[in-house]
Design a protein around this nucleic acid. Structure first.
Lengths: 340, 340
DNA sequence: CTGTTAGCGCTTTCAC
DNA sequence: GTGAAAGCGCTAACAG
């Protein structure tokens, strides 16, 4: 019969006829107790429905099994997938995650980090490598393992697992110039909002520059990278008769899909009249008659790797500090060689 | 100059020349301290960079500002959107969320609830109304406010905000029979995996039954409701020449989109040869030439309402126990009247 | 291997 | 309005 009140460690100790320290050791699976006693205690704990109070555990041990994760958004599946990979791996090692959605705001992230540190988390995961000085300060002082994800730097606060977006942009640009595209347009969001997208854009620019081309237009009116924003931006692009791109580079597959839809619905043939390239390699691509040319990012895997690295660091194991994941250019049917 | 060590309440008290109790009261914004003193203390706290240790706060107060949220999946944007509405509302009231992804497993949920209770959360949010007896037991004993979301019941554990999926299914079915469809097929996932989808299916069945029709086929091979699963299931459906549906009801818009793609790529005209109906009203629909007929669920709003209700309950305010959100049938271009 | 003694940093309670 | 004392439930450090 379970008791009325929530059982505490003392109740287990009493029921088992041992000290609370023995129960503590048994529950945590640490050394310093005989195998026999441990099993007995665990059995009794289960019987009376005892679960350690995590709050008390964390206070006494001065650290919790919480990991704080800050992502800019949960829309668009990109961060959902990264997070999912991370969460499932962390969970296996007994960590729980507290999530934050910063909406791409550095100051939001800053406030969250400060609040989060009050939970004495075992680790913190931040998206990107752009943080406020105050955030860096708080992190430094708290001495908590910090992992930066999605973006890549050789010189992280602590650990970094991500994609070199500058390089990814350059790869895409090179791919396009090799196909013979000469007059690219760009569709994205407000400059400064998404640093990774901005870096990819720079990479694209460099590659095109190397081929003596430059962007004939940039549409950055969108607030977020949705299907509809891609559709609308493409509409604006084609309504302006002074520009005449041969390929449109979209921030993201979802925007690219919106753009593709605009073209199909307005008699613009792709890839004949216009090339389209996205980014990420999202699931929707799998079912399209005309698969979008894109750069595939290994999101779930990245999440898993991130978690492994962070766990290693938390447990004090030696690990590399950074992992850079390459993107894979996937040639779809929305681009083709221009040399005919 | 901030100190080397992480400042505690005592440091603030010393710096301000008051007792730690005054600092405690000032920080929490509770009564029992003069306005003047409070402001002084807060200023000093800010200056030396003091943040209350949440773990200690929670232990002493026997309750935390954490809210646990369990969702079956983060793919497909449905739960991301609900969660986002919830999170943003909770955050405004100072709550942080710990998320769980149960992968539609009741036993996973059970284990998580038990672990989560150890954090003395202010509240718990569970997806659906199907839980193990042991989960219900643990919840009852913990006396924590519990909110069930997405599904709907008049008799929740505690609070419930969601959609009546049986009714939603029936609405869709009635819509289809009124259009004159007589020979429906169903595409979903394994029966028992997603109780809400099963309930919608029942609703569909009832409506069709009322019109003396029944499902000519059901494809439930899929493990999850992805674009690709919808595509493949549709392929299987059309490869079987013995069945000849006039409309396919999909578990979810993503599957419906996959199905639509299969049709377009295989010379099957929609809505001429086959009708298609989805569920949820996802963002992708906004940019399609042929918008998918669907039932729109107010996901973000539901998240906000959920959070408001839970917060009210946590703060001890009187509120209604349940909110049922209606779905809105949106007639797209993938169905049409059959009476010609 | 086992148990005792001090806290972890804060809030509750109860004096003043 | 203010502060001293007594925990919240558990673990670290030590002693046996």
């Amino acid at each position: 019969m379970p008791q009325k009140q929530k059982p505490k460690i003392e109740d287990v100790a009493q029921a088992a006829g041992v000290s609370i320290m023995s129960v503590s050791r048994a529950m945590r699976g640490v050394e310093g107790i005989s195998q026999k006693k441990r099993e007995q205690i665990l059995k009794i704990a289960r019987r009376i429905g005892y679960y350690p109070n995590n709050v008390a555990v964390s206070l006494a041990a001065s650290s919790s099994n919480l990991v704080g994760v800050s992502v800019p958004t949960l829309f668009g599946t990109v961060f959902s997938e990264i997070y999912d990979g991370m969460r499932s791996t962390l969970e296996k090692s007994g960590f729980a995650t507290i999530i934050d959605v910063s909406d791409y705001s550095i100051s939001h992230e800053e406030a969250w980090v400060e609040r989060m540190i009050s939970w004495q988390p075992a680790g913190l995961v931040l998206t990107g490598v752009d943080h406020s000085e105050r955030t860096r300060d708080a992190l430094r002082r708290a001495k908590i393992p910090v992992l930066e994800i999605w973006d890549y730097t050789e010189d992280p606060i602590d650990l970094c697992v991500g994609v070199d977006h500058l390089k990814a942009g350059a790869q895409m640009g090179t791919h396009l110039t090799e196909l013979g595209y000469k007059n690219p347009a760009y569709v994205g969001v407000q400059s400064g909002k998404d640093p990774r997208a901005d870096r990819r854009f720079q990479g694209l620019e460099q590659s095109f520059d190397d081929a003596d081309c430059q962007f004939c237009a940039q549409d950055r009116d969108a607030i977020s990278a949705t299907f509809e924003a891609g559709f609308k931006a493409t509409e604006r692009l084609f309504e302006d008769e002074t520009i005449n791109p041969d390929v449109i580079c979209y921030l993201h597959d979802n925007m690219a899909f919106g753009g593709l839809m605009y073209c199909e619905q307005n008699g613009i043939s792709c890839p004949e009249d216009i090339g389209i390239i996205g980014y990420n390699g999202l699931a929707i691509n799998e079912v399209l008659a005309k698969r979008i040319t894109t750069a595939i990012t290994p999101r779930y895997k990245m999440g898993q790797d991130s978690a492994s690295l962070l766990i290693a660091k938390i447990l004090g194991a030696k690990t590399k500090r950074t992992i850079s994941h390459p993107v894979i250019i996937e040639e779809g049917q929305t681009t083709r060689s221009q040399s005919n």
